[in-house]
Design a protein around this nucleic acid. Structure first.
Lengths: 256, 256
DNA sequence: TTTACTTTTTGTCTTATTGACAAGAACTCT
DNA sequence: AGAGTTCTTGTCAATAAGACAAAAAGTAAA
């Protein structure tokens, strides 16, 4: 049952009564560990890639100078998903290849300024070489390795981040989202390394032989006739992802 | 990043700008198919039980006389989970044995009266014999079999219900929530029938022998020394659920 | 051209999990 | 005591996952 307009008008609708609605986005990317300026040019070497998360440093109280997730208010003329995509685009100037709602956080005391409920999303983006712009309320933006996050984050963002990481690592095992980090065609070794890098660093790595059979049997990829050129050794076959046929109603249905 | 108070005051915070926040709760129970008044007394016969959902009939426009999920506005002094529990208690006068956040629905046009975002929960409750009370905005409340829901529901509640059913049916396969429908001690046959009844009616039933081994090996239940008295045949052993040790951060962590 | 080397791909074996189905054990009721 | 029903154990086949070896296919250097 929805809000009754009559009641609102009677009670008055002011800041004391209202609940602010925001989105926060956990932006994941596979990026090289140490990226220096002189090697920023398109080295297609993905060996140093690791799972990283984009955080912004707050320029205002509360939690001044704390690292936080990118996010902001939901405008009344945009859907939740549009709000999340907007936050993502403002911060990274790339489109997400994958965007999924995570959870809605609504503890009473989560924002000292007043009642705020945040719908959290997580996004997978392909590596971008662009620099992130800072605004008046953000003094800095930085990618952090998923294994080396700041000790303390603003608000309850540590909880959000922990959950996003847990969800991503679980979901990659049974759903077909790993290729969202890769170009349209890719080799099995690339895909396997994405799997490995999403898991914790000390997790056991996938066996190349078993991985090939498993992912081919699942039908999520289809082989092409091309092979990767220019390698130093036996050229591997290139594969293409087939659009995932999920049974999850909120993933396939009309966005909500 | 959270709402900045300064901006609010500058822009003004009125009904046009604000977004209303509601919760809607999908309340599941295992109830007898046709419950007549003269057999409402405590027959412990669960043979006729089936999965049902509580819906309320709207007494107001929009969607007057449509069936809808119980729900309402989130008050600013309660968390999301508290709001969901309150809705549940107001409608059923029972406590949920299980309550989990489902998804947040925020399509722009989902409420014709204005921008409304709804955090959906689903709840599992043990069968209650109590009658549900109607209010001024609700003309009626009724339990519907999960397989025979009304064709059209108010707002986007059909989407919410479809997703809740999908999630419940999936989750019961790998998580340990089926016993939430049962008393503290129960037999394996009772637990197995809960599994069967949660799945669609034409789904294949669990094999008693395999079910016993599977659930015992998973360690989610522990056997007691008691047996069920008063049966007509060989008395089965009673089991007790062991508290689920989930790895899901939002299920074990501090409620958000 | 041959050799060394690396990576991809195939092969084989073991182990664990699941499902189908039969049969025994335990209790109640007649 | 015997019939009937339910609970419980046993067995076997099918499938999936994991460990490990080895062959195949290319590059680079001698």
């Amino acid at each position: 049952m929805e809000l009754e307009v009559g009641k609102i008008e009677k009670r008055g609708y002011n800041a004391q009564d209202g609940i602010s609605l925001t989105v926060d986005v956990v932006i994941f990317s596979l990026r090289p560990r140490y990226q220096h300026a002189w090697e920023a040019e398109n080295t297609d070497d993905r060996a140093n890639d690791e799972l990283q998360v984009l955080l912004v440093r707050r320029g205002r109280s509360p939690y001044m100078n704390y690292w936080a997730l990118p996010g902001g208010r939901v405008r009344s003329d945009e859907s939740l998903e549009e709000a999340a995509a907007r936050q993502l685009h403002e911060k990274t100037s790339v489109r997400a290849s994958y965007l999924e709602q995570l959870y809605t956080f609504g503890r009473k005391e989560r924002d000292p300024r007043g009642r705020t409920v945040s719908v959290a999303y997580y996004a997978l983006v392909r590596t971008d070489r662009q620099q992130v712009a800072a605004g008046d309320d953000i003094s800095e933006a930085r990618w952090f390795p998923a294994d080396e996050l700041p000790q303390e984050l603003a608000f309850d963002h540590a909880d959000i981040l922990e959950y996003a990481l847990w969800r991503l690592r679980n979901k990659v095992k049974y759903a077909n989202i790993a290729f969202q980090f890769l170009p349209p065609t890719f080799t099995l070794t690339q895909l396997r390394e994405v799997y490995d890098k999403i898991q914790a660093r000390n997790a056991k790595k996938e066996d190349p032989a078993n991985f090939k059979r498993k992912v081919e049997a699942s039908g999520v990829i289809v082989e092409t006739n091309e092979r990767l050129e220019g390698g130093r050794h036996r050229p591997p076959r290139l594969y293409r992802a087939v659009l995932p046929a999920t049974t999850d109603p909120v993933q396939r249905g009309p966005r909500s």
